[in-house]
Amino acid sequence: MTAGAGQGITIAVARETAPGERRVAATPETCKKLAALGAQVRVQRGAGFTAGFTDEAYAGAGAQLVDDATAALDNADVVLCVQPPAASVLAQLKPGAALVGMLAPQADAARAAAIESRGVLAFPLERLPRTTRAQAMDILSSQAGMAGYKATLIAAQLAPRFFPMLTTAAGTIRPSKVLIVGAGVAGLQAIATAKRLGAQVEGFDVRPETREQIESLGGKFLDLGVSAAGEGGYARQLTDEERALQQQRLAEHLKTVDVIVCTAAVPGRPAPKIVTAAMVAGMKPGSVIVDLAAETGGNCELTRPGETIGSDNGVVVAGPLDLASMGAVHASEMYARNLLNFASLFVKDGALAFDWNDELLAKTVWPRPPDSSGVAA
């Protein structure tokens, strides 16, 4: 399907409106590169302000500045966003327009209905296939890296102790013992950050093949003697007996831990519960848990999304939200490059050219690829 041939297309970026969201979907750098693809980039004034990008920088990159979101989105061929637009905003989009961002259409019935009824080509990049070719477009990885970094810094701030070992006139301070639960992108960044801060770091994951990655960052792999190794590199489901043994050994180990950073998440599903209330009750007073998975329910039973609470035995449990947004400058730079690389798949010489034989487009578009007429099949 090709659209806009010979006329040039408009790519729009409006200011994000979700509470606490500081990121922006395009930076002056990516605006310049989008323009090189033959597109006119239209940016709402102030869209990049909270991420450290001025209107003057966008104008200098060739973007057209407009005063409000309605003007930005009017008749746009492509809309780039961070958080999903409200259903009322989706209703303003041009039929056939491409919408690219973290959209989670299945999470909101009104949003899904607005996308379908308007005939918008939605590309929720959280659906992007995890292939080598897609790495430069992988928003989950780029944003998880910032989230893991920030979660570790929050843990260091909340902990009533130093992370590194110190030799002082008042005696030697032993290093904090930090356990990172989950060794995905966020967990590995958390391990690296805690190690740089001087802590004694352990990493735990149900996939034994993560041992090498954890150890390459200076962490120690926490082996509880239960392996969830399955076929094709995926973890298998533990039996009830295996899970009980794992929980028992983890509970015993947590009695010696000063800080836990939880990062285990499954896209599109509630976060697995790994740290139980009973485990927290067995931890030392003054211990800290930072639950990066709070947005999807948390890995800890006591986590309250968006809150920092104290347990009955003096353990602090934090469930911070919008962690990637806390590092808005670099998070936006990475995210905007992800979107630029994805848009490059279908923005060709100032026109929209969708190749539905390309699995990155066909498997990401929601709800399904259009047929040859451009109508959803």
Rank of each mutant, 00 (worst) to 15 (best):
G8W: 06
I9Y: 00
T10E: 11
R15H: 13
A18R: 14
A18P: 02
P19M: 12
R22N: 13
R23W: 11
A26F: 08
P28S: 08
A35L: 14
Q44N: 10
G46S: 03
G48L: 04
G48C: 06
T50A: 15
T54K: 12
D55T: 08
G62T: 05
L65S: 07
A71V: 04
V82P: 07
S88N: 15
V89A: 12
L93C: 03
G96T: 00
A104D: 15
E116L: 15
A122G: 02
P124E: 09
P124Q: 08
R127H: 13
L128V: 08
M137E: 03
S142F: 03
S142P: 05
A147K: 04
A147L: 03
K150W: 10
A155I: 03
A156I: 04
Q157R: 15
R161I: 12
F162I: 13
L166H: 11
A169S: 14
G171A: 10
P175Y: 08
G184N: 00
K195Q: 11
R196I: 01
R196F: 02
F204I: 05
D205R: 03
T210A: 08
Q213N: 08
I214M: 07
K220Y: 12
D223Q: 04
V226Y: 07
V226L: 10
G233K: 09
Y234R: 07
L238R: 01
E242Q: 05
R243W: 14
Q248T: 14
Q248W: 11
R249T: 05
H253T: 08
D258Y: 04
V261W: 11
G268M: 09
P270E: 10
A271C: 05
A271F: 02
P272G: 01
A281R: 11
G282T: 02
P285E: 01
P285S: 10
V288S: 01
I289H: 00
A294S: 11
N299E: 04
G306Y: 07
G310L: 15
P320W: 04
L321Y: 09
L323C: 00
M326R: 15
G327W: 12
A331R: 06
R337K: 14
L339R: 04
F346T: 06
D349A: 13
F354R: 02
F354G: 00
D355I: 05
N357W: 09
D358M: 08
L361M: 13
K363T: 12
G374H: 00
V375F: 01
